[in-house]
Design a protein around this nucleic acid. Structure first.
Lengths: 355, 355
DNA sequence: ACCCTCTATGTCAACGCTGACATATCTTGC
DNA sequence: GCAAGATATGTCAGCGTTGACATAGAGGGT
């Protein structure tokens, strides 16, 4: 398969210009000014837009700027304006988790409207690296920080906050730091799903989620318990499976539940990873046991999997909006914002109890 | 040490020093220097690390810096060093497409190793906005650009390239611009999948993909045709369905194929969206008709769906590596790098022809 | 004619940092 | 004892930009 047949070969080649000569340096305001026969300040005025410049002069400046391919240097601009850049930093955890990127996407979209650009950094879910990563961003003089807290403690940011850098936490609240938080409606969202199952006649409902201990997972577990308590189910602990280990514990947990003498008639998964495990474990028996997973996923609708869904983009958007508010007015108490979740019924969650 | 008598008072000094602002702002090198009783340059040396500083002095400086919560200002640093920041810009298309973010993730991981931070920007798949977005990044003085080309023409970047800003294209090559490209092995990857079906006895093989016209999709279609031509199938056009419209054309296309008097015994989908359509259309008949989709997706393994897969993170990684090479040595012809794809057999693709 | 305001442009310093260069002390070698 | 290096620190200018301030002609009102 080495030689691509005919078709539309010749993808590259055809260099438009010989292999690159480099480093004619970039034009500055002064260069443009010289060419246009005006002062640097006048060029500056043309590019920052908000001052008196004669139309004729403006044209001459623009012509010179285009000829020299001038581009205003935002670094210098930022330095001049209090040394703060027009960027915000987003610190996410595990880079392979698309959740973070969806949030980033929502943020980007909103920030772009305000001409703010976003700088990305990842902690790779290593709590120890959080502070280091944050420092990198602060050195870049971001105007604000949005972080998905992963370290055990964010008090190291207290100084920054006092210096006026807003900190917004996403998905989990910060610990030991006054900061706004944008989180999911984890607890009541999960409760909603369980209630739906209860309404449908289920009493033996399993809950699978690993790793335990995270804020989000604790909240979801709590919601699960809330709903079962409401329903008068007192032995819910029996149906809980929360492992902290790696490997594929969720799938095993599901099999374990299904192998009980009185197996659950419905299972709720606390996150996407757990959903995958449960679906694998269910296999051919997917039509027998009801299932609802927290987190929507691609093709879930094609497959008829009911989920507790939410708008990840919205989380990012809300984070961005809160951030913009903070930049306008840094005072005021921290807000705890919950983003709505809702159960999407696609079939798997509406299966009635078998026994 | 001229002006600045003590700390307070000094009201009578008329024109010498106007009342200094009391707003607590961020500490600078000079502030630290004053507190430590050394020159700013010495503090600079401590923080850039690579020069002679006595241990005792270093300690004193660090103590002062910590007390003042000093942070080096990378903006100023960058400005001093040729006015170029230590960042690269990534321009992606539709922000809700997780593919882009996976690429971003791979890049980030690699760039972080080199202390380079990434700036994100999205074109929202609007070709007209590409140039504007790119400009924003260039104004931030990114050291290099990685873009997923969406505009019809990237020649507007030629000037930048000549000024020494490397441009790397991902997923699709640039048009009218000399730039490296990191793309998937679209053509032969698709051909591999079709060959596998042929080997399994299939001759009537459908291909569904929308929208047509994109580079990637053209390549995949070409690969499909390659393999069928090899197999001596001459009427492959009959089995191709490529629509440009929106809605859910892929699902309809699949139904249409299945409703033919001599329906295909196997179907290949050209992208994830098409896969979803086909899976919906197949419904209960999933076990009768072989299926392979381009792009892996979550739970595909749990569901036994065979796919043409690749490592999206790897694409980003390769882009980052190429970029770093370019920064080291800006010369040399543009490279066209293909990232490997491979067929993952999970069952759906190994179903033998029924008739 | 005079003053006033509006428009249009220029001069200069400074944002925070570091490279180039200068200076001063301390070793080491012969 | 002294040149030659190694070590330690300081001074100054300038990266590209713009705010503050200065200047100067054009128009308007009286």
């Amino acid at each position: 398969m080495a030689g691509e047949p005919d078709g539309d070969g010749g993808l590259e080649s055809v260099a438009l210009t010989p292999p690159t000569r480099v480093t004619r340096s970039r034009a500055t305001l002064a260069d443009v000014a010289r060419l246009a026969g005006v002062s640097a300040k006048t060029v500056s005025r043309v590019f920052s837009g908000n001052a008196y410049v004669a139309d004729q002069t403006r044209d001459r400046v623009m012509a010179a700027a285009n000829r020299l391919r001038f581009r205003p240097n935002d670094l210098a601009r930022s330095l001049r304006h209090g040394g703060v850049a027009n960027t915000v930093g987003f610190v996410m955890g595990d880079i392979t988790n698309q959740f973070y990127f969806q949030v980033a996407a929502g943020m980007e979209r909103e920030l772009a409207k305000h001409g703010i650009t976003m700088i990305l950094a990842a902690t790779e879910d290593d709590p120890g690296s959080e502070e280091r990563v944050v420092e990198t961003l602060l050195n870049q003089r971001v105007r604000a920080l949005v972080i998905v807290p992963i370290a055990a403690d964010q008090s190291y940011l207290e100084g920054e906050r006092q210096l006026g850098t807003p900190v917004i936490c996403v998905d989990r609240p910060a610990r030991n730091l006054v900061a706004d938080a944008i989180v999911l409606r984890n607890r009541s969202g999960t409760a909603d799903a369980v209630r739906a199952l209860v309404t449908n006649g289920h009493r033996r409902i399993g809950f699978i989620c690993s790793p335990g201990g995270l804020y989000t997972h604790e909240q979801r577990l709590a919601g699960y318990r809330d709903a079962l308590r409401e329903a008068g189910v007192t032995d819910s602990r029996r149906w809980e499976r929360l492992k902290d280990v790696d490997g594929r514990p969720d799938e095993e947990s599901a099999r374990e539940l299904m192998a009980l003498p009185d197996p659950p008639t419905a299972i709720v998964a606390g996150n996407n990873h757990a959903s995958a495990g449960v679906i694998r474990a269910l296999g051919e028996r997917r039509s027998e046991i009801a299932f609802i997973g927290f987190d929507d996923f691609e093709l879930a609708d094609a497959l008829g999997i009911s989920v507790i869904a939410y708008d990840t983009l919205e989380m990012g958007r809300r984070a961005a909006l809160r951030l913009l508010e903070r930049l306008d007015d840094p005072t005021g108490p921290p807000q705890h914002i919950e983003v709505d979740t809702h159960v999407i019924a696609r079939g798997s969650g509406e299966i009635p109890p078998a026994s």
